[in-house]
């Protein structure tokens, strides 16, 4: 198992993430941890997708390719994997057990 099929979901209850979005990026406040995080547009987009519906890294990559018209590539997959790992470390996302 390479972990790409693990389902990612919000680590905190619904409504725990508060968003402010601007042209140069966005910030989220996680009520559960009390932490504030800066996200660039792409990372914020990934989090929005998972917030809307839990999904695996593989499914997330598929959605990104379909919605943004990007080619599936090792670089894109690594970028998404890194973002998910960071969100996990920050206790924003978790893997569904």
């Amino acid at each position: 198992m390479d972990g790409t099929s693990d389902i990612f979901r919000l680590a905190a209850p619904s409504g725990s993430l508060h968003w402010r979005e601007w042209d140069d990026g966005c910030v989220i406040f996680n009520r559960t941890t009390g932490e504030t995080h800066y996200l660039d547009d792409f990372t914020a987009y990934l989090l929005r997708l998972v917030e809307a519906a839990p999904r695996s890294q593989d499914a997330l990559t598929g959605t990104v390719c379909a919605e943004l018209g990007r080619e599936r590539s090792a670089t894109l997959e690594a970028q998404i994997a890194r973002a998910l790992r960071n969100f996990e470390t920050l206790a924003v996302l978790e893997r569904a057990r």
């Binding site: 402010r20 601007w22 042209d23 140069d24 990026g25 966005c26 910030v27 800066y38």
Partner: peptide, 18 residues
């Protein structure tokens, strides 16, 4: 300044934001 960058800079300037 970009608003997101300004937000982060202001929180960094706060002594009791958390």
């Amino acid at each position: 300044m970009g608003k997101a960058a300004a937000f982060i800079a202001l929180t960094a300037c706060s002594v009791n934001y958390r």
